[in-house]
Design a protein around this nucleic acid. Structure first.
Lengths: 198, 198
DNA sequence: CAAGATAGTGATTGGCCACTAACTTGGAAC
DNA sequence: GTTCCAAGTTAGTGGCCAATCACTATCTTG
């Protein structure tokens, strides 16, 4: 297998491992095992662990855009937003994609706290790239795009916390008055009674 | 200083350190240094690192509710939601609070991937407690509470990524048609032109 | 003051981990 | 069939880190 092909398989394996363990919680040994090569060989293909993480992060965001793009091909405005919402919800099944995103965000903060700015610059470039492409696709409005991503981040959180999709916490994603951005009617959305605890 | 007082200061220090480094990226040595005690002494006060993390997580969520509760005392419905939105945005200044939340969420996923369920159960209990208290406060509607938390999670993400509050990405938090939940008009919110890139 | 409890430290250890260096193997070119 | 190179391995190193153990010092109480 050529070095380039190996690098590709390393990125795929790294995405899964980093998604599950986070940067510090993932050993290069674990990545190598998943790829099926020896651990030191990773350092021939990449200059270090950080570079592998950055590559996995970039791949993750690109992949997310690919999913959005395919789902909303030929659509725009409200229709595109709904199509992309549905597509994002289908990613919930494949949690690694979603969790790699979150791992990237917290890693940026940790790296910055430790004095490293590189990964942060990469992450912001990726985030803005995705944000603007989505924004254009759904009509260009800043507030609409912000809402879209807000629900996306909540989805990430619920997945991280391990809530199954039929849990009551997923029931609040229904259409919301005039402009139901997200939703795709997740789980059962029976109306909620309003005073139950506290 | 009594053991109980020490435990309290350990929790405060741990919250800061874990917020910045994540679970695996924070050494007990760093926590002990911040507290001003020797590292082995932490293991007299807590059974292990995990217990310190759990205590910090619990403290973090409780503190968040305290902020919400104070900000919205005596209010309800839309007014309470706006008050709490504003309060949350003030937390952006004190990033450790916000980041400890995210570190908790990703740690739950990582722990679960490693076969540990305990922290996940704790985290879900904390999340649902906060969610429901907020929900009741703003009127009990599930969709409204979901929207509130969705914007909250996006705020966490933007903070993690290191965007200053006057960055254009914060401009989408304005009032959104009929029921402007979140917002508190962050930064400058000039209208956005709609076709600029891609 | 004797005696126990409580707060706290220094030294250590066993294990993991990122990364390096030196070696091996298989195929293509001539 | 030898040379060469790219793919890949085995062995090893220095550093860090959670947790343990044995110990000291300072109160408290009768």
């Amino acid at each position: 297998m050529s070095a380039e092909e190996r690098r590709e398989s390393v990125v795929r394996a790294a995405l899964i491992e980093f998604a599950r363990g986070g940067y510090h919680g993932t050993s290069t040994e674990a990545i190598a095992r998943r790829v099926g090569v020896s651990q030191p060989y990773l350092f021939r293909l990449f200059p270090g662990k950080q570079a592998i993480f950055a590559a996995a992060a970039e791949r993750c965001v690109e992949e997310t855009w690919r999913v959005f793009d395919e789902a909303s091909a030929g659509l725009s405005g409200q229709e595109a937003a709904e199509a992309m919402s549905g597509a994002y919800l289908s990613l919930v099944e494949d949690r690694d994609q979603l969790m790699m995103q979150m791992q990237l965000y917290v890693s940026v903060f940790s790296a910055r706290a430790a004095g490293e700015e590189e990964i942060g610059e990469t992450a912001r470039r990726l985030w803005e790239g995705l944000f603007d492409r989505v924004r254009i696709r759904i009509g260009g409005d800043m507030a609409d795009a912000t809402q879209f991503f807000a629900y996306g981040m909540l989805i990430n959180t619920l997945v991280a916390l391990g809530y199954p999709q039929d849990h009551r916490l997923w029931s609040g994603f229904g259409e919301h008055e005039g402009h139901g951005e997200h939703g795709g009617h997740v789980g059962h959305s029976e109306p909620e009674e309003s005073g139950k605890a506290e």
